[in-house]
């Protein structure tokens, strides 16, 4: 889960805020551009935001004996490209920091960078790199890796702030043990949920998705995919 309020030294907190801010600003512009260019996709944008909202509210028990929650950022990253998720993810993180004392304002920059920047980009990269794989596999990988990468990043941020006697690597493995291992089953679950939600989206919003270029990596198949989706 996110880094708690006050648990990054001021210098780190400020640095991560500075790093995350341009992504969020760019993401906000990306949202208004998307709405302008694809007004028919506004509903889908709502779906992507709502999906992260639900998933990041559900804490699940995991194999390590602790619990964590999924992120849901992979879906929007695949449909709208990652910058949009930088803005949507920030809204979710602000909500949790202000109302739930989960995460925090001083750690918002770091948490935005892990959940709303690194996660979506890793998920999107996986989706694109697996261009030749079956569509469900690509979605699964995008969702699961966006989830996992978020917490690998969180562990990295904490290891940088608290290297301890064993140095960065030692601290990193400790924090990875806390965050990343816990996250593995959750990432798989999120990947499967993603496959289900995308099935629904494909059959109900096929034309919108193809207008956004979600299927465009394989132009020869794109048409059939849409047709398939519409007839399913």
């Amino acid at each position: 889960m996110h880094i708690a309020e006050g648990f990054l030294p001021p210098l780190h907190a400020a640095a991560w805020t500075a790093v995350a801010a341009p992504f969020v600003i760019h993401g906000t512009r990306a949202i208004s551009r998307t709405i302008k260019e694809h007004p028919e996709a506004t509903l889908l944008l709502g779906a992507a935001g709502a999906f992260t909202f639900v998933l990041s509210a559900i804490k699940l028990p995991s194999v390590t004996g602790s619990s964590s929650h999924p992120t849901g950022t992979g879906l929007g990253a695949v449909i709208f490209r990652p910058p949009v998720m930088a803005a949507l993810g920030t809204i979710v993180l602000l909500f949790q920091a202000l109302l739930l004392a989960h995460g925090g304002l001083t750690t918002l920059g770091a948490n935005v960078f892990s959940m709303a920047v690194v996660g979506p980009w890793v998920g999107y990269a996986a989706f694109r790199l697996l261009g030749r794989a079956p569509f469900s596999v690509r979605i699964f990988a995008a969702m699961a890796l966006a989830n996992l990468a978020t917490y690998v990043m969180t562990a990295t941020q904490l290891a940088l702030a608290f290297p301890g006697q064993n140095g960065f690597v030692g601290a990193w493995s400790v924090f990875l043990g806390i965050f990343a291992i816990t996250q593995v089953p959750l990432a798989i679950i999120e990947g499967l949920v993603g496959v289900l939600i995308f099935k629904a989206l494909r059959s109900w919003a096929g034309p919108e998705l193809s207008a956004l270029g979600v299927f465009s990596r394989r132009p020869d198949h794109a048409g059939t995919k849409v047709e398939e989706a519409i007839h399913a």
């Binding site: 708690a4 194999v63 390590t64 602790s66 964590s68 995460g103």
Partner: peptide
């Protein structure tokens, strides 16, 4: 598996954020 893992002290299935802090 998690329940077996956390037979130690205190609460089971605390959040990873609390574990980190």
């Amino acid at each position: 598996l998690g329940t077996r893992q956390s037979t130690g002290d205190g609460e089971t299935f605390i959040g990873t954020d609390s574990a980190a802090t």
